[in-house]
Design a protein around this nucleic acid. Structure first.
Lengths: 162, 162
DNA sequence: AGCATTCCTTACTTTTTCGTCAAGTTTAGA
DNA sequence: TCTAAACTTGACGAAAAAGTAAGGAATGCT
């Protein structure tokens, strides 16, 4: 259960754009790559994904650059992650079926809902955070995260099934 | 934000052992591999990780096999995932620092707490589920997951920082 | 004791993912 | 129109993950 390089880098680039938005500036590819320690080519490919998804606007030519398509306060992290994931969505049992062609658990599978449910939980948590909230100081972001986490109340155990 | 093959397969094997525990039986490697559609070699490697971590007990020789080291109702999924992750833990900014040696955000980073916080949220959700709860019917497991998800109350927005 | 069964361990091959390079296309300004 | 800045795209090579194979060691049964 880890976050991929694509996801993290994409998120970082968006945060840079969110910071630039405060001053109504646009960022060039070189600026973004520099600030995030990425190669220009890699950052370019990453930005293209975000542009294609409609999250970022690009302006070509001299004095061009990238800007957020919407205010940072309107962009929620679940949308960002969904875009950067893209391909990994929709393959639950299908890809991890092992040697078999079809999932061996098609009839009554205890694993599938766990996989799906976990993704839902993560998406749910992410939808509570906007890009704008990430440009604050580290302490603020940290506090925000723990605020979300605390609200997961303790649960009554479920009766054993069978 | 996806689950690796290791994690899913490992979880599946544990569920098989949990089912066998109900009848106080032990499962051989071939049985596990068969039921999960994995190659024997691959399942063997997987089981070895679980044995080493103390989650599973193994008995060599004729009539040998694998059994859970503890009752399934005592094994929570966060522990399972943590074991199967192992190597991916503890590398937040460090591994994804891009071209640079050190994280470019060491001073005041908005991304790091997000990465860490997300893992905590996932671990939190997982700690509410035990292996025993996964051997029920698919509907029960699904209901259980949504029960957890529902308890994430809506949050008040955090004031913008700066 | 010897044999069959089963787990344990190491090394290797295949596949996927990640990152980079290089060439091409579009735009803005002099 | 010409030039430079900037984005776009596809192909390539390196690194990591996933899966495979084979030999070794322990246990129980006859």
């Amino acid at each position: 259960m880890k976050i991929s390089a694509h996801e993290e880098y994409g998120l970082r680039c968006l945060v840079q754009l969110a910071r630039a938005e405060v001053d109504a500036e646009s960022l060039t590819l070189n600026q973004i790559a520099d600030r995030e320690g990425l190669s220009v080519a890699n950052a370019g490919k990453l930005m293209w994904v975000l542009v294609k998804a409609g999250l970022v606007q690009s302006q070509r030519g001299a004095n061009g650059g990238y800007t957020l398509a919407r205010p940072a306060s309107d962009i929620r992290l679940n949308e960002v992650i969904r875009i950067l994931d893209e391909d990994t969505v929709d393959r639950f049992c299908k890809t991890h079926a092992g040697v078999l062609d079809a999932c061996i658990h098609t009839s009554d599978c205890g694993i599938r809902p766990v996989i799906v449910g976990l993704h839902e939980i993560v998406q749910n948590a992410l939808s509570e955070i906007t890009l704008a909230e990430l440009i604050g100081s580290e302490e603020n972001v940290d506090a925000r995260l723990h605020q979300i986490q605390k609200l997961q109340s303790p649960l009554r155990p479920m009766r054993s099934a069978h």
